[in-house]
């Protein structure tokens, strides 16, 4: 089983991202589970959401304490949240940032990867909404889910032009991360 933790701010669609990842993983013939760190959601406040992906039905109901992967939607969170908390040594930390991974002094043995998801979102979607873009980056960085499955999940959730553009952004981020690997 792989466990993913998504850090974001209220309003950035972290919970939606976790859900879409669960939908995509299931489409890949895996079992999955997605849930928010249940709280009193406020716009702008740090939030977390979780996804589990496995080969058998997922029964575990606790929060995620030792994630295999962490996604950070907003780099300003690094100042207020210990995003690498519990992250496995052989895991991957994906940060939405235009800086190089080496720039970040984070206490982790896990690999740090960065992607300028905000730029991709602005260029392709036209708005700085990065949650779907980062799912594409996740697919490219980890290989845990097919980018096509994420694109399908995105298009199903956001019908029409919005979904199309998001799906395009997913593929763009996927390619960028795959090439970094």
């Amino acid at each position: 089983m792989k466990e993913i933790r998504i850090h974001g701010r209220g309003g950035q669609g972290s919970v939606t991202a976790a859900e879409l990842l669960a939908v995509a993983a299931f489409a890949d013939n895996k079992f999955s589970q997605a849930f928010p760190a249940f709280g009193v959601e406020r716009r702008g406040a740090p939030v977390q959401a979780f996804t589990r992906i496995g080969d058998v039905p997922i029964r575990l109901r606790s929060q995620v304490y030792e994630p295999d992967y962490v996604i950070v939607q907003d780099p300003t969170l690094l100042e207020v949240v210990e995003v690498a908390n519990g992250l496995k040594d052989d895991g991957i930390l994906i940060i939405n940032s235009d800086f190089d991974p080496e720039t970040f002094k984070i206490d982790t043995k896990a690999r740090i990867m960065t992607v300028n998801a905000t730029k991709i979102a602005l260029d392709i979607i036209g708005r700085p909404i990065v949650n779907t873009v980062l799912l594409g980056a996740f697919a490219g960085a980890t290989g845990e889910v097919k980018p096509e499955s994420i694109m399908e999940a995105v298009k199903e959730r956001f019908p029409g032009k919005v979904g199309e553009r998001n799906a395009e952004a997913v593929m763009e981020a996927y390619k960028m991360m795959r090439d970094q690997k």
């Binding site: 939908v23 999955s32 997605a34 849930f35 928010p36 249940f38 109901r61």
Partner: peptide
């Protein structure tokens, strides 16, 4: 059903 844990979870 456990609130949030089941009411808000996405699963197959």
């Amino acid at each position: 059903m456990d609130g949030f844990i089941l009411s808000h979870v996405y699963e197959p």
